[in-house]
Structures are given as structure tokens and as C-alpha cells.
Write a protein that binds this DNA or RNA. Structure first.
Lengths: 197, 197
DNA sequence: TGTGTTATGGACTTATCGTTCCATATTTAG
DNA sequence: CTAAATATGGAACGATAAGTCCATAACACA
């Protein structure tokens, strides 16, 4: 496939992609210029175009990468968690930490993308919907584990609960980004968990 | 104050502002160009700059206008509602209608603005935080009315419940914008209401 | 009617955007 | 050592953005 002939790349595409993702996550698509990307990724314009095809294709790869990382991270967290319920609690509480992150609260890249593009770009809207369903599926696994462990009533619809958790996460991250303090977020989280009983 | 001397305006500033707000709500700040605004508002560039000062000041006035309209609309809805609880249910269910709106699901202009600017523009972040608190205050009134009517337990913290409702609304609107269908939204709404019991 | 005041339309300016292109550098295969 | 292939750096391009400026139009008042 990839011919091993010719001059070799002077950068690691994966590292560059990660840097681009961080930029888009912090500033959104429109507020990130090519210049910003070139600096963050530490490569030349030609290399960016040759390797990633341009700004928009790069962005879509970043959203995909983010989705993978988050879904995979949640899956691993669930595997290690002492119980499904505890995992869900930890998942919601982790939003509190984001506010103290060095980047500040950046929200969820997928939902940020939905806000920026869902209305105008059908292809990106499709990516977003797929990402959301991936998050939902992992959380549904957590709900079902909690049900099997007796921490959530078995008769509840696990898929709906998972949809609810995705929606709640999105709301919480938006509140955090909009300046809500820790006390407010904690209160919202506590109420959110009530719906699981 | 406003001198009534000189050539009179050929447009109604309030109508123009409403048109600008609809544009910003539909497309966001960056995706709305001056050209878009001039067409939507039906006025000349000079008039826009003279009357509104430029794109950013116009945008902030639009966000303020939106906040006023929503807060006032909620207040009137609450006054007419048969009960506090019923008002809250109607408030959440109204998000379902937005998806069938001729504009499509546009989310909440205030939260869209938070997503686009909270990280980079402190002044706008301040406006956003104020708007959120105004929404919260109206909803807190609804919660307290429901408590006095025996539909929500009196011992619950009405302010926290109101914060929770704001966050839930924001999450729901984001899900709607991201393509969630009516069934999914209804399920989330039903779960959201459980937290009030 | 004339003067001061504000509004309007449109040309113009300046900056920045994403993208393309080409000459040059660096590698592998034969 | 040569030729083919790929990567890189930087100049140049076309488009579009927001914002400014000025000549002209339309009013109120005296």
C-alpha cells in the first residue's frame, strides 16, 4: 500500500493529528486558522495538505479520533470500575475536573461540532449522530451492568437511560463552559443521578 | 435624547434587530456574514454601522434580545399555566416542537453562543452567564410554585432544581440539533422529570 | 428658502482566509 | 550513480471578510 519509496516524513502523523484535535477542541473549526494548525502541528502547509487533504478533511478525522478516544476511554473505565453504578457516577463527576483542566472547560468536541455544523453540513451531522450513538452504546453497557448488579431497576429501558446520560453530559459540559461553578455542577449531577433510581 | 432632526430612518430598528437575531440563531456568529445580515435586515451597510455599531455589538444586542424574549415568554407561560409542575412539563415538551420548526432545530442561542465564544471572549461569556441566570430565575419561580402546590416536595432546593432544568434543556436542545428523533427526546424528557419527584 | 442634521448607497481599503503551485531536498530501487 | 518517488518550504493566488469614507438624499427648523 504505502510505498516505502521517496523522502520519508519528518513528522509523526499521529502526533500531528492529536495536536490538531486539541486545537479544534479548544477553539472550534471556524476559530482555528490554518496558521494555528501549522504551528500546533509543527509542519508545513504542503505537508498538511499532502497528508490530510485540507482543513475540513483534517477536522473530520479529528472528530473521529476524539470519538474513538472517548468511547475507548469509557469502555476501559467501565471494565475497571467496581460497579456499573459507580462507573456512571464517576463519569458524571469527571465533568467537574474539566473545569480545572489547563485548557479550561472545552465541552465535548462532538457536541461542539453539532452546535457549529449540524444545521449546515449534512455530512458532519451524520458523523456527529454516529459519534453520539457510540457514546450511548458504551453507557448502555454500563446501565445494563448496573441493572445486573441490582443498582438500577431491571425494568428500566437501558437504552433510554443511556440516551438520558448522553444528553445530561452534554448539558453539564455546556453549563461548565458557560461558567457554572463546582457547587452548581455538583447539584445538577446529584439530581441527574436521581433519574436512575 | 434622540434628536428628531435630519433625515428619518427608512427602516424599523426593532424589526431589523429581530431579523438579525434570527440569522445569528440559525447560523451562529462566524457563519453569518455582513452580507447575510444586510439581506436579512434589508438595510445598507452604512445604516447597520450607524445604528448598531458593527457586527459584534449587533450580535450582543441580539443575544440580549433573545434572552429577554425567552425569559419573558417563560414568565407569561408560567402565569397562564394551570400549575407549576404542568408548566415545567410543557416547557420540556416544547423542545419537541422545535425540531418541526421551519428553521429546523437551532438549539438555544445563548448556549450556542457559550459554545462558540465562552472560551475566547470574556465579555460575551459574562453576557451568557447572566442570561443563564435569568432563565434559571424564571424556572426557580416555577419550581417554587409547584412546591407550594404540592407537586414537588418542599424540602428540595428550588434553585438547584432550576439549575438542573436549565442544564437539561440545554442538553435536550443539543440532542435535537444533533439529530435525535422525537422518540428519543420524549424518553429523555420523561427521565428528566423523574428527578423532580 | 436656506441651513443644519441625519440617513443612505456604494466604492474603497485592509486584512486574512484556505488553497495551489513549483522549485528544491531527501529518500529508495536498480 | 541514475532515475523515480515522495516531502518540504515558501511564494503567489483568488476569494471574501469586516469596516471606512464620501458624495448625495431627505428631513426639521428658522
Amino acid at each position: 500500500m504505502a510505498a516505502n519509496i521517496g523522502r520519508p516524513l519528518e513528522f509523526d502523523p499521529d502526533t500531528a493529528l492529536e495536536a490538531a484535535m486539541q486545537q479544534f477542541w479548544s477553539k472550534g473549526y471556524e476559530h482555528t486558522s490554518m496558521q494555528d494548525l501549522l504551528v500546533a502541528m509543527n509542519l508545513s502547509k504542503s505537508s498538511l495538505y499532502q497528508t490530510f487533504g485540507g482543513k475540513q478533511p483534517l477536522f473530520r478525522r479529528c472528530v473521529y479520533r476524539y470519538t474513538d478516544q472517548v468511547a475507548q476511554g469509557l469502555g476501559q473505565g467501565l471494565a475497571k470500575a467496581p460497579s456499573g453504578r459507580r462507573f456512571i457516577e464517576g463519569f458524571l463527576n469527571s465533568i467537574l475536573k474539566e473545569a480545572q483542566d489547563r485548557h479550561g472547560p472545552r465541552g465535548c468536541l462532538v457536541m461542539n461540532t453539532a452546535t457549529e455544523f449540524a444545521q449546515s453540513e449534512p455530512e458532519i451531522a451524520h458523523d456527529v449522530a454516529q459519534s453520539i450513538d457510540r457514546f450511548r452504546d458504551v453507557l448502555q453497557g454500563a446501565v445494563e451492568r448496573a441493572q445486573s448488579e441490582g443498582e438500577i431497576p431491571r425494568e428500566r429501558d437501558s437504552q433510554m437511560l443511556a440516551n438520558y446520560l448522553v444528553s445530561s453530559m452534554s448539558g453539564l459540559k455546556a453549563q461548565s463552559k458557560a461558567g457554572a461553578d463546582a457547587a452548581r455542577l455538583k447539584g445538577i449531577i446529584a439530581l441527574t443521578l436521581k433519574a436512575l433510581d
